[in-house]
Design a protein around this nucleic acid. Structure first.
Length: 839
DNA sequence: CGTCGGTCGTAC
DNA sequence: GACGTACGACCGACGT
């Protein structure tokens, strides 16, 4: 704002007025960004708001003393009443458009702009009237719109600016279309515009229209002298299109004299509500806009001297992601509006009783590996993960919520951690169940996992090496045999080369194709169907199994034994899955083989320390028990309460038999369905797996649901609620958003349904075992025992031989008693020198 | 030489 | 089309 404020007649006026066509701009943004996939983490579409905000903010940087944003008021307008056909042709806006317009209006208010809606008058006409009036009163007028009808308003004082920043002036109009602003409605009357439902005259395009108007001046004169118009072809078209032309002109013409009670002289921009705007943009997760507008306090804190207070947020940089193997390159702390960088040494960490950080566990593990006792405190990412499990990476999460950037420097990380924590605390206000999960499960679990990672597990390296050598010899034999059968050597590890050998050279019949590229599959299940067709198939399957185990486990595992500890230190990831499960890496110990004989020999390599044993405990059928609890199904619950075999009893229910009369096939079918139901298995898959035909498989599934009607009802309940709320949740309230449930694409929607149904079951099981771990850790400590591994429904504990039985009892009772459900939780526990023996 | 998508395979 | 959740090996195409 400039100019001296004076009273009365000499009150200073802004020189320029900006009129924004809110509705048109919103509509254009909606369609321009329709496929950009811009939704919040809650699945709410916000693309129109985003596009609108970008365009508006760009404009405001340049213009802006007086900005009026005009919207259609609810209810009919006079133009609708006048032209029923026009109204009829207008398509109803998509259902996610209107909510976004409401957001846009909110944004306009927060920016301190004037928002105008006049009942009974279309926004276009309000805009036109205001433009002319402002021009008459001496203002320069800028109209922001993509509506070409507004070109009729152009004068030397009124210009139109499009969202693409094109400036439309009378000169531009003359040059581009060859007409004057006064001729614009006539031009539109002749050419029409399908996107605005303006019919125009059939067969008359831009060139003809411009030529006719240049010759005759106006539509009225043109039709008055229609007899004289040449060539005759055009004359004929004009004759036929007379009605359409005049109708088109009427709907193109903007009303410039509608009654408006608006005082332009008082128009000015109000203060931007910065705090409100910040909250608004955060809610919509427009991190980029937040930063551009300087609305986030990101890395701008004052530098202070080390040492910081001991409740600081820490940031750190490792030279590699694995904390047991990493060097600490940088260490920093953030508190209040200050940040300090300190020496990256273990003793500098000693002053912090608790580590608050993003990745607090990893820094703790690093400290523990340097024999410094440390405890994880708060972790902002853990909180964000509870808010939405797609928040599984620091960088994307920080960006999403405008908490700065995941810098590669410790100071930036410390600040971002503090910022993200504040943001999440606000967002989780009143979310008592999520806070419970944080306080009672995730936060304390960090410390348990840190100790597990630090302790690691002993590996019998010599045994693995011997096994690896044995396999190397066997693999060489198999490879040679396959090459001989193929008639030439090739890379057996290349599925592409194998595909050629099998299906082109040997002429075997491909049974299935790969999902993405449609190549002829060489997967184990595809090869199964070729068994017997050629001796090479059997050899390939053997080769595959051996090379898989050797390449994935036997050879990599010894390399991961730590030189300082002589043990293997898996990392556990607490924000790695969409359901709340843990994941593990370096190595992933959650997929160590067990099913084949060779796989079991690999498990034998995981051994207890001297004087210790392994105690292995696993929940029996935990997911089916969770399903029994969540669904409330009486039949399913009764089986577990009576301690019966779930698969046999399911078969008995399905086939109307007594448990003793169930044959092995029936039990196997029931078992397959029991697991399949948890994942939403199709009849197609079931038929393939059981080797029965499709109809029979469908009948089995029907019988399953008839046996457990509560399960079917639960399934429907979960999906209905998820469609309503946009997310599903576990027994403890852990959430997962599933916006694709409303997808129009059937395959996408059905996949989302399987995801939605599975998560509460899988996630509740995860919640239960996590809670058990938190409860168990302090009970093991006095026994000198400790947790080593978690494999989803299984815990591996290392205990001194002298306390093995006691530790086993503690594990079993803690796991079984972790939470009271409507069905008992059962735990099988074993003790042994190695992982296989104990299981 | 590193990255990345695709395929395959191991676990629960 | 196809059964949920992970991690990771290997190949081969692509870019530096």
């Amino acid at each position: 704002m400039s100019g001296v404020q004076q009273p009365g007649l000499f009150e200073s006026k802004p020189k320029r007025i900006v009129l924004v066509d809110g509705h048109h701009l919103a509509f254009r943004s909606y369609y321009a960004l329709k496929d950009a996939g811009l939704t919040t983490s809650r699945g709410e579409p916000v693309h129109a708001v985003y596009g609108f905000a970008r365009t508006l903010l760009k404009l405001l940087r340049e213009d802006g003393d007086c900005v009026i944003v005009v919207f259609d008021a609810p209810g009919p307008s006079f133009r609708h009443e006048e032209f029923e056909g026009y109204k009829a042709q207008r398509v109803a806006p998509p259902e996610d458009f209107r909510p976004q317009v409401e957001k846009i209006k909110e944004l306009v208010d927060l920016l301190g702009l004037v928002r105008l809606e006049v009942p009974g008058v279309e926004a276009d006409d309000v805009l036109a009237t205001l433009a002319q009036r402002a021009a008459r009163e001496g203002y320069e007028v800028v109209i922001l719109t993509s509506d070409r009808d507004t070109y009729q308003l152009l004068t030397d004082r009124i210009v139109v600016v499009t969202p693409e920043e094109r400036r439309i002036t009378p000169d531009y109009l003359k040059e581009k279309y060859g007409v004057t602003p006064e001729q614009w409605v006539d031009y539109r009357a002749l050419t029409g515009d399908p996107s605005d439902n303006i019919p125009g005259v059939k067969g008359v395009g831009a060139k003809t229209a411009a030529k006719l108007l240049a010759e005759w001046g106006s539509l009225d004169r043109l039709y008055a002298h229609l007899d004289e118009v040449t060539p005759p072809g055009v004359r004929k078209k004009l004759e036929e299109g007379r009605e359409a032309a005049f109708f088109s002109r009427e709907i193109s013409r903007m009303r410039t004299e509608v009654p408006l009670d608006v005082d332009l002289s008082g128009c000015h921009r109000n203060e931007v509500d910065r705090e409100g705007l910040r909250r608004f943009l955060l809610e919509l997760e427009f991190g980029t806009l937040l930063r551009e507008l300087g609305l986030i306090a990101a890395p701008t804190a004052q530098a202070a001297d080390w040492p910081p207070p001991d409740n600081s947020w820490l940031g750190y940089v490792f030279d590699r992601p694995q904390p047991m193997w990493a060097e600490l390159n940088q260490l920093a702390a953030a508190w209040d509006d200050r940040v300090a960088e300190g020496p990256p040494r273990p003793d500098e960490l000693a002053r912090f009783e608790k580590v608050h950080a993003i990745g607090a566990k990893d820094l703790t593990v690093w400290a523990l590996s340097r024999d410094l006792s440390l405890h994880p405190g708060n972790d902002a990412l853990l909180l964000a993960y509870l808010y939405d499990p797609s928040n599984n990476q620091p960088a994307s999460t920080i960006r999403r919520y405008g908490a700065g950037d995941w810098s590669d420097e410790a100071t930036g990380r410390a600040l971002a951690a503090q910022q993200l924590w504040r943001e999440m605390k606000d967002r989780l206000e009143g979310e008592e169940r999520l806070w419970w999960l944080y306080r009672e499960v995730e936060q304390p679990l960090q410390g348990v996992l840190a100790q597990m990672e630090r302790r690691g597990v002993r590996l019998d390296v010599a045994y693995l090496k011997a096994l690896s050598d044995e396999l190397a010899a066997e693999l060489a034999r198999l490879e040679e045999e396959v090459h001989r059968l193929a008639g030439h050597p090739f890379n057996l590890n290349s599925r592409d080369q194998l595909e050629t050998v099998l299906y082109d050279e040997l002429g075997l019949a491909p049974s299935r194709r790969t999902a993405k590229t449609g190549k002829r599959s060489t997967s184990a299940s595809a090869l199964e169907t070729l068994r017997g067709a050629h001796p090479i198939v059997e050899k390939i399957l053997q080769y595959r199994e051996l090379s898989k185990l050797k390449g994935t486990y036997l050879d990599p595992l010894p390399k991961l034994v730590h030189p300082r500890t002589g043990r293997l230190h898996t990392r556990f990831h607490q924000t790695g899955t969409a359901t709340g499960r843990l994941s593990s890496s370096d190595p992933n110990l959650q997929n160590i083989p067990i099913r084949t004989e060779l796989g079991r020999r690999i498990r034998k390599a995981f051994v207890a320390a001297e004087g210790h044993v392994l105690v292995v405990a696993d929940y029996s059928q935990i997911e089916l028990r969770v399903l029994a609890h969540l669904s409330g199904d009486e039949n399913l619950q009764r089986i577990f309460r009576e301690g019966r075999d779930i698969h046999t009893q399911t078969a008995a229910w399905m086939f109307g038999l007594d448990g003793d009369d169930v044959d092995p096939f029936q039990r196997r079918a029931a078992k397959t369905i029991n697991f399949g139901v948890l994942y939403g298995m199709s009849a197609h898959r079931l038929s393939r797996e059981l080797g029965i035909d499709y109809g029979e498989a469908q009948a089995f599934i029907d019988r399953y649901f008839d046996s457990y009607p509560g399960v079917r009802a639960f399934m429907e309940r979960v999906l209905a609620e998820a469609r309503e709320r946009g997310y599903v949740e576990t027994l403890f309230g852990r959430r997962r958003h599933v916006p694709e449930l409303l997808s129009k694409a059937r395959n996408v929607r059905e996949a989302a349904e399987r995801v939605a149904f599975n998560m509460p079951v899988q996630g509740t099981a995860a919640d239960l075992i996590k809670l058990a771990m938190v409860k168990l850790a302090p009970r093991l400590e006095p026994l000198g025992a400790a947790l080593l591994l978690q494999v989803h429904d299984e815990l591996v504990v290392e205990a001194p031989e002298a306390h093995a039985e006691e530790a086993a009892r503690a594990v079993k009772t803690t796991m079984e008693g972790v939470w009271e459900l409507d069905v008992p939780l059962a735990v099988d526990v074993g003790i042994g020198r190695d992982w296989l023996e104990a299981k």
